[in-house]
Amino acid sequence: MKNAALITGATSGLGLAYANEYGKKGYNLIITGRREDKIRTNAVYIENTYHIKVKTVIVDLAYEEGLNILLNEIRDDEIEVLINNAGFGLKPVFTEVSKEDMNGIMFLQMNTVVILTQHILKQMMVRNRGTIINISSDGAFAVMPRNILYSSTKLFILNFTEGLYMELIDTAIQVQVVCPGFIDSDFHESAGMNVVKKKKGFMKFMDPEEIVNLAMRDLKKGRVVSVPGLDAKIIRFISVFLPRRMFYNIIINFTRKRNKKLNR
């Protein structure tokens, strides 16, 4: 497949929004996910709507076996855009996280991102063109209790992407990391989190399409770190400029209040 955009975790939410965005732009798509019925339904809709080709790869990228399946599936494809979006969260406190979940989240949100990026970047370097978009989170700026491994791996993605940008500064390859706040998707339900998505005010949920629209504007402007939405920008600001002790107190108090509301 030529002129292809590869999007991991395109079953719903941000990944699906990116699939529609790049389908609209005329790219052929390679989309991955674990829920076969849903992702195949998405593929049919996108093909019929934008008159492009869509290849689906049903795979779990939290395991080396799944990553190897994907690498084999794309060995003959000419990929112009890579969007590393696949991810998941963990609900328990750190001491209650299973070894399987620890290995899974670290492999998916670090190993898979690095290995897939290097694999595709090599062919982009030959052509001296391409776009790499890695999805991080506002959690990369502000780690929270019950969110330690997720935030830590998202911080890795942020640092990795900024470093990649500097290495590629003399090429025509675009690199961006997107750090959204809460997204209205299946993410929290999949992680077993009880959340209220219709609330207003600070830390509200944003539509995936809105986040993609803002991130694409930033990409056009050459902005390496895209922080879509005011709430995520506030999180980034306080994490940088507040004294750490004050920052810890704010996060701890916020987490305690949130947990009380969720446990009522």
Rank of each mutant, 00 (worst) to 15 (best):
K53M: 11
K53S: 13
T56S: 05
I58T: 04
D60W: 04
D60N: 11
Y63G: 08
E64M: 09
E65P: 09
G66S: 04
G66I: 01
G66W: 00
I69C: 09
L71W: 09
N72C: 13
E73T: 01
E80K: 12
L82K: 02
F88A: 05
G89C: 07
T95C: 13
V97P: 02
K99P: 08
M102L: 14
I105T: 03
M106Y: 10
Q109N: 15
I115W: 08
I115V: 14
I115N: 05
L116G: 00
T117K: 07
L121W: 01
K122F: 06
Q123L: 05
M124L: 06
V126N: 09
R127E: 13
R127D: 11
R129G: 10
G130E: 01
S136G: 13
S136E: 05
A140W: 05
F141M: 04
A142S: 14
V143F: 12
V143P: 12
P145Q: 10
P145W: 06
R146I: 14
I148C: 13
L149F: 13
L149I: 15
K154C: 05
K154N: 03
L155S: 15
F156P: 07
L158W: 07
L158E: 10
F160A: 02
T161C: 06
E162T: 11
E162L: 10
G163I: 02
G163S: 07
L164D: 00
E167M: 12
T171E: 06
A172C: 10
I173M: 07
I173P: 06
Q174T: 14
Q174L: 12
V175K: 02
V175H: 02
V175G: 03
Q176E: 05
F182G: 07
I183L: 03
D184K: 11
D186W: 04
F187D: 02
F187E: 01
H188A: 15
E189K: 14
M193N: 03
N194I: 14
V195W: 01
V196K: 15
K197I: 07
